[in-house]
Design a protein around this nucleic acid. Structure first.
Length: 279
DNA sequence: ATAAACGCCTGACGGC
DNA sequence: TGCCGTCAGGCGTTTA
């Protein structure tokens, strides 16, 4: 579900507070409850419940699609996968059916609860002393200084993969998912099945700009809110191709096509994104 | 090296 | 109304 812009939106809301709830920065964790055991990737339940109490939330970072909670001693990493979300609620509120892990937080005035809600149970939580134990395999941040058009070109031509699955490979680039990849490829005028080694420098430049553009646009609209997981974003009203099968391309008017690439629904404009057979 | 198939899960939706 | 197939913002493992 959430891709980089949605994760960034959640991070910002947790840091600054939202809808009546305060920021969770500076709060101390009192108790951990794990309601679906597989949600906890590491360590064991016993160690987790022993290590968490007393640790303060110092800062919240993001790396790719991971949320990285810097605690006073350890790091708490959360990946929301397809359907996860993080909610701040009163500690005494009834437990929602889909809550998988909760942390009660001590506030000066009242008790709060940070709840990991995840209907499909794909999300995972790690408590580690070094975040690189989990994050090391990730590729660069698409909005970071390391990710230049030249870097992208060199790495695209070094492989012979289909563009879309390669862009969604988190070890190649960290943060793009199904929606933003389709949006970026359309904006760049590239077919998702294009072989990465056949791309031109000009095509790479368009792709690099498109990736950054759609991510920044997504963040500007606080991410996309689709399906039953509503988080207040608005980017779903600005999709150019995603979920627009049969509707007209805003650029050329052709009907948007839906194909399957790498087992994922893929939307493209057949007029704007022509597959060039090369190499 | 690359990619397909499948598993992990619940829920919404459309067709009959 | 109920049943069934399909689909869903992700990713790890196995197989080809």
């Amino acid at each position: 579900m959430p891709e980089l812009p949605e994760v960034e939106t959640i991070r910002e809301n947790l840091r600054t507070g939202r809808s009546g709830n305060p920021s969770i920065l500076g709060k101390t964790i009192h108790k951990a409850r794990v309601l679906w055991s597989r949600t906890l990737a590491t360590p064991s339940l016993e160690k987790f419940q022993a290590l968490i109490p007393g640790q303060t939330i110092v800062e919240i970072q993001r790396r790719g699609k991971y949320l990285v909670f810097q605690l006073s001693r350890d790091f708490l990493l959360i990946h929301l996968r397809m359907s996860g979300d993080l909610l701040v609620e009163p500690a005494r509120a009834p437990l929602h059916k889909h809550h998988r892990l909760t942390l009660t937080l001590l506030d000066a005035s009242k008790k709060l609860r940070l709840a990991f809600n995840d209907p499909r149970k794909f999300g995972r939580v790690w408590l580690v002393s070094d975040p690189d134990e989990v994050l090391a395999p990730l590729g660069p941040e698409p909005l970071g200084s390391e990710f230049t058009a030249q870097y992208l070109y060199q790495n695209l031509i070094a492989r012979r993969r289909q563009l879309k699955p390669l862009l969604m490979d988190q070890t190649f680039l960290a943060g793009l998912g199904n929606i933003y990849t389709d949006e970026a490829l359309h904006l760049a005028g590239l077919h998702p099945l294009t072989r990465s080694n056949t791309i031109t420098e000009a095509g790479t430049k368009r792709l690099w700009e498109a990736i950054r553009h759609v991510l920044l646009e997504g963040m500007r609209y606080n991410g996309a809110s689709i399906d039953w997981v509503f988080r207040g974003g608005d980017f779903q009203n600005h999709f150019r191709v995603y979920d627009r099968k049969g509707k007209n391309c805003y650029t050329c008017g052709s009907p948007i096509q839906r194909i399957v690439v790498g087992q994922r629904g893929t939307y493209l404009c057949p007029q704007c994104q022509v597959l060039l057979i090369g190499d």
